[in-house]
Amino acid sequence: MYNFDLVRPTTIADAVAAMGQEGAQALGGGQTLLPTMKQRLASPETVVSLTAIGEMQGVCISDDGKLCIGGATPHAVVAREAGSKYPGLAGLASHIGDPAVRARGTIGGSLANNDPSACYPSAALASGATIITNTREIAADDYFQGMFTTALEEGEIITEVRFPIPEVSNYQKFEQPASRFALVGVFVAKYADGVRVAVTGASEEGVFRWSEAEAALGKDFSASALEGLTVPADGMIGDLHGSKAYRAHLVGVMTKRAVTAAA
């Protein structure tokens, strides 16, 4: 690890100011950034820790009935506190990494990093969540822009994520055997106005919506509605742990399982 300055602001305003410095890098729970820094693959001059900002912590329900999660809220807190309100999301949070990861890793950090195998992006996209930053509100459909790429501007901080709560939902993760990240993860959320299906882990473009499945499930929310539907292997990630064809196949399997579990 290279030397760096650490600042730990207690307000969003102070964090935004700190992020304005040359070479500043926001730090959530550090589950990606710190290993990268230890490997000397990242060398921020100033690390701006967001974990001491009270207004970015916690889980609540907004007046319009949405689930609001502070950007610096650890997965374990979401798992514990969102359970009665949005069980599908709490279930996802409770299976990210291991207890140590869940104690430190944050929802804002996960969404800002947008690892193609991370769990949270699928929930945000399938829920049609709103990503709230220090400057604006971004719809999930506009936010995810490919592997490790998002709509965030330089220095922009995710302060909150707002989830419309579905009627039913479920997340099914098929774990990569080594990292236990999602080899393929599918989040299915059924709302009064339709079904949304988001897939993580599988695509070279990062998290994506499977629109054919959404249309089919919108008419008939059952696993059998998905019979015969496939995603093309072309464009899937192919690596040691899963070929393109295998990932494409798993998208179908995991979607069916998520629907069955949710229904």
Binding site: F174, P177, L183, H241, G242, S243, A245, Y246, H249
Partner: peptide, 13 residues
């Protein structure tokens, strides 16, 4: 070996 899910599924299909 290792009989990973990918290898087993590939053999089956």
């Amino acid at each position: 070996m290792p009989l990973s899910p990918n290898r087993v599924w590939t053999a089956m299909n």
